[in-house]
Structures are given as structure tokens and as C-alpha cells.
Amino acid sequence: MKGQKGQSVVEFALVLPIFLLIILGVVYGGLAYADYLQYSTAVREAARDISVKDSAKRSATVAGLNSNNAATVKEYADPLTKLYKATFSVRPFKRNQDGSETVTDINSAQFVTVKAEFVLNNTNISVLPATLKAVQCTMPVEKDNVQQQNQP
């Protein structure tokens, strides 16, 4: 019995680093997922806003998101941790009769697609993937005269 007194301390010392690594991975994974949800909501909100704004505001929002202007991006997303850097892009397009799509300017577009791609900000965090799956949302663009007709 005398020689086994330190057995539990040795076992605890062997298991503790593995346990802490698992806990750290779960915490970082949860924070990364929270950022991902924030950015996916931002993509959806940006696509919706672009589709219903008047042409001047629509053009400014598209330009701000395509250049990843910090103020424009922050208008839609302010993630908790900023573990991932989101790169936004906006693609206005028309659908042709044959089903193909033609990229056009935002004021003559029928649809707008907002997309965000994610790259890990700090490459020292090895428990997280370097990139996340891109988020994309497509919305039909309302014409300015349709909005004016619906307003009282």
C-alpha cells in the first residue's frame, strides 16, 4: 500500500493535458461557430437590404461590401471573437431565357448574390480549421418604381 500513494497523482498528471486540450478545442470551436453564425446572418441581411434599397443606397452598399469596407461590413456583422476574417463579395446578375446568368450592374440586375468566405485570422490556433465553408445568399432585386408604388 505504501508504494501506491502517488498513483492517482501520476494518473491525473497524465490525463490533465489531454483533458485541457479537449476543453480548449470545444471552447474555440464554439466561438468559431458563433462567428460563423454571425457572418451567415450578415450575408442574409446584406442580400435583403441590397434587394430592397433604392438605387443610390444599393450601389453604395454593393461598393462597400465588394471593397470590404470596415464600416459597411460592421453595419451587418460585428462578430464576438473575430477568429475568422470574412471577405464579402456581391454579384448582381440577370437570368437569361436559356437559364444562363449574365453579370450586370446593380441597377439593372434581377438578382443579387452576397457571398462571404472565411479565413482564420490567427494561424497559431491549430485546433481550428484554416478556412470555413463559404456562406451565400441570393435575393431578387426589387425595382425602385415597384417600391414607390407600394408606399402610401
Rank of each mutant, 00 (worst) to 15 (best):
V52H: 12
S89R: 09
Q136Y: 01
G6E: 13
I23P: 06
K133E: 13
T123S: 15
L37K: 11
Q7P: 04
N122Q: 01
N121V: 11
V112N: 03
S67H: 01
D105K: 07
T131S: 08
F88N: 10
F118R: 03
F88C: 10
Q149Y: 14
A116K: 05
S55I: 06
G6C: 13
A42D: 02
P17S: 07
N66L: 01
T81C: 13
T41H: 11
C137R: 13
V9N: 03
L120E: 06
Q136A: 03
T72P: 02
A70W: 12
A109F: 15
R91Q: 06
T72F: 11
S51P: 01
N66T: 03
S40C: 09
A130H: 15
G3R: 08
A86D: 00
A86L: 05
Y36L: 09
L16Q: 03
T123N: 11
T72D: 08
E117C: 00
Q97Y: 11
G29R: 08
D98E: 12
V10P: 09
Q110H: 05
K85W: 09
A34H: 15
T113N: 09
D78Y: 06
R58L: 10
G6R: 12
L83N: 06
V141E: 14
E101W: 01
S8H: 02
K94M: 08
M1C: 03
R91F: 02
A130S: 14
I50N: 09
A32W: 08
G99L: 04
P17K: 15
K82L: 01
D54R: 15
A130W: 15
Y39P: 00
S67F: 07
N145Q: 12
L80M: 11
